[in-house]
């Protein structure tokens, strides 16, 4: 049993990792078939990962309601949202059409499921992120102070790009458009490139460690 619990996952990771690394260098059709099948498998397993994410949220709020923790009423609202969306998405059209799942439109006409999506989910998510517009403004006011050389550089680059990316800035000071493009294409590109190289070295090192079983944190969960 210990082999199954401890060693088997490591063996699987090792074998899968080595095979799919080497696959890249092998153009033979057999290796291509392996790649096709492998990617399809991951695609299907991805579906279950989706379930995993959803059930954990379900669980957390169920506990909250059960124990009547502070704010459990909001958890009820959350459940209400789930149930209504599910009911509308799965059953309303199941009765009417031949499709098994929820479609936002059928033959160009919006369905009830599409209505929920368009008039609740879209504005809610959109607004949640739109709030950041206000916070970025107050962050700029609070913290964009030329306290040091570094801060001054950051602030100058930010102000130039803010001017160079909008018509009014380019209209008042046409040169900001050119400077913005230069900052983005040259200065910014070089920094991002260095970060990309650094991060990729880190990611490759991590992947190698995972394949060789030196890094096992991803296995997480599952008490032994």
């Amino acid at each position: 049993m210990t082999f199954l619990r401890r060693q088997l996952p490591l063996v699987i990771t090792f074998v899968a990792g080595v095979i799919f690394t080497l696959q890249y260098y092998v153009p033979h059709p057999k290796s291509e078939i392996l790649l096709t099948e492998g990617s399809l498998w991951i695609q299907i397993i991805g579906l279950f990962a989706l379930v995993l994410g959803v059930t954990s949220l379900f669980h957390i709020h169920a506990v909250k309601i059960k124990r009547q923790e502070p704010g459990w009423g909001y958890s009820l609202i959350l459940y209400f949202g789930i149930v209504v969306t599910l009911a509308v998405g799965l059953f309303v059209q199941w009765v009417g059409g031949q499709h098994p799942g929820g479609k936002e439109t059928i033959d160009g006409a919006m369905t009830a499921f599409g209505w929920i999506y368009t008039y609740t989910m879209v504005p809610l998510q959109g607004t949640m992120f739109a709030i950041l517009a206000f916070f970025i403004a107050s962050a700029a006011y609070r913290s964009f102070r030329a306290r040091s050389k570094e801060a001054a550089l950051l602030l100058t680059a930010a102000v130039i790009v803010m001017m160079g990316r909008v018509p009014l800035g380019e209209y008042l000071l046409p040169v900001t458009g050119d400077i913005t493009l230069w900052i983005l294409n040259v200065l910014n590109a070089s920094v991002r490139r260095a970060i990309l190289i650094g991060i990729s070295l880190g990611a490759v090192a991590l992947s190698i460690k995972i394949i060789f079983g030196l890094e096992r944190a991803y296995l997480g969960g599952g008490k032994e």
């Binding site: 260098y25 092998v26 153009p27 059709p29 490759v204 090192a205 190698i208």
Partner: peptide, 27 residues
């Protein structure tokens, strides 16, 4: 005929092996 190795990408593999060796050596 289909080929078993893409020699054009051998530098990629070589660097991977060298880097892997470097990481393990350092550990």
């Amino acid at each position: 005929e289909p080929n078993w190795v893409n020699w054009n990408q051998m530098n990629n593999l070589l660097l991977l092996l060298a880097f892997g060796a470097g990481v393990f050596g350092s550990i």
